[in-house]
Design a protein around this nucleic acid. Structure first.
Lengths: 237, 237
DNA sequence: TAAAGTCAGATCGTATACAATTCTCTGCAT
DNA sequence: ATGCAGAGAATTGTATACGATCTGACTTTA
């Protein structure tokens, strides 16, 4: 199932196991939007939730803050990150900058088996789309990101892979905040088109489609400056 | 002087101050090669060196491990990272993938003042090259990286900027390990060429030069597989 | 003599304890 | 009623304590 969940663990990243598990659990909760941006994550609460001391909870929160999923404010605590409009734009700018290159690398190295695996991922994604219910929705969000992550994995560059993990995770936060269309199924078809181009070894088209795809996701966001209603306007009516 | 040292601090990164200072001090030492790859960094030693408890030392080491500058092995301790050949290649592959895009972004937004600033940086770099002594060597290493970092800063994308910081820092480790030419002055002239192209708004040439520049740095490395003499061969002769 | 077993020292993993800071609520003065 | 001040609670920052694991040397035994 989540075949890449393990593969994404950097091999040299053999820090202690306790904090890591908590970090992963929290990250999953954030990415799947069970935790909303801005939610306070107090060290004691996290600790008691996972039955560990504040020490480990704190370490996990610190780790997530390096990934940009949690923002810790000195002497105030940790919160699920609440990306600003600027951050949101920068996250997608980074993806536009990086993903074509990753795709190009991946296209050069991809094996038939990996192509098949990609197709399977796509099918799974489609299946989830047609299913209803909270848990299917969450799985769909994850699957949608996994497509991009799998490409990064195929590219064979662990560093870019880790970077993409960060970008995809943060994108999920941005979509949670600024997404408009209820259909989080952003561009399932486009994923398929990219795979098809990949099968044809048509790298340039694939890259072009990828850029288009990212733009498409971004277009579904409401990234306009909200001039934050001056309190009066917010309540009148 | 180090005008970008401050600018590079992510604004939201307001974690506690204690561990951060230690982390920065250690990073500087690693990047300037006062600490060699493989050096053991025990929590107690780091702590007593900075007159803090193991708690903070540990936090700093964890942070550096997220940046790839330190590798912590479970129950064994932390060491200055010792990038493998694969890692080294991936670091430079990532730079080739990312830097042209950053440069393009930077070229679109660069102001005359920033161009001037870049020129100044270049001059400073040249001055350090002609100076002798350990401390000048260290400053030169830093200055050489700062050129790339400054471009990332100009690009206006904090996320890419942070990523470049990581890549430049890790590059320094790779060069320390696999660099051949005693002249660490890798491509000072090329920096100048890129600036010149930038002044002419000749973005394509600038990108091309950048790629060439990175390739040039990489070419000065000895990234050949060393089949690590099987102990017997190492001594028979 | 060489291999295996054992023990002490060092180092890390985690929990707990105490200090410092921030937040909130109450009470008083204006 | 508003605004300020201060006490108390809650939360984070840092240090210390204790158990777990690894390492290396010494001893034992075949």
């Amino acid at each position: 199932m989540n075949s890449q969940a393990d593969a994404l663990q950097a091999p040299g990243d053999s820090t202690e196991n306790g904090a890591q598990q908590i970090r992963d659990a929290l990250r999953e909760a954030i990415v799947e939007r069970r935790l909303s941006p801005g939610t306070k994550l107090s060290e004691s609460d996290v600790g008691s939730l996972f039955n560990v001391s504040r020490t480990l909870a704190r370490a996990a929160l610190q780790a997530l803050s390096y990934e940009g999923l949690v923002s810790v404010e000195k002497n105030r605590g940790a919160f699920v990150a609440y990306p600003s409009l600027d951050e949101a734009r920068q996250i997608f700018a980074a993806r536009r900058l990086v993903e074509p290159g990753i795709l190009r690398s991946a296209a050069e190295r991809i094996t038939p088996a990996q192509l098949k695996h990609l197709r399977q991922l796509l099918i799974e994604e489609g299946r989830l789309m047609s299913e209803r219910g909270q848990s299917a929705r969450r799985a769909e969000i994850k699957a949608s990101g996994d497509f991009h992550l799998m490409l990064a994995s195929i590219s064979g560059n662990l560093i870019m892979q880790r970077f993409m993990e960060e970008l995809v995770a943060r994108s999920s936060l941005v979509i949670a905040l600024y997404g408009q269309s209820s259909a989080s199924s952003c561009g399932h078809a486009e994923h398929g088109d990219i795979i098809t181009a990949l099968e044809r070894k048509d790298i340039d088209t694939a890259c072009h489609l990828m850029l288009h795809h990212i733009a498409h996701i971004e277009a579904d966001l409401d990234l306009r400056e909200r001039k934050s209603f001056g309190l009066k306007e917010a309540f009148e009516r």
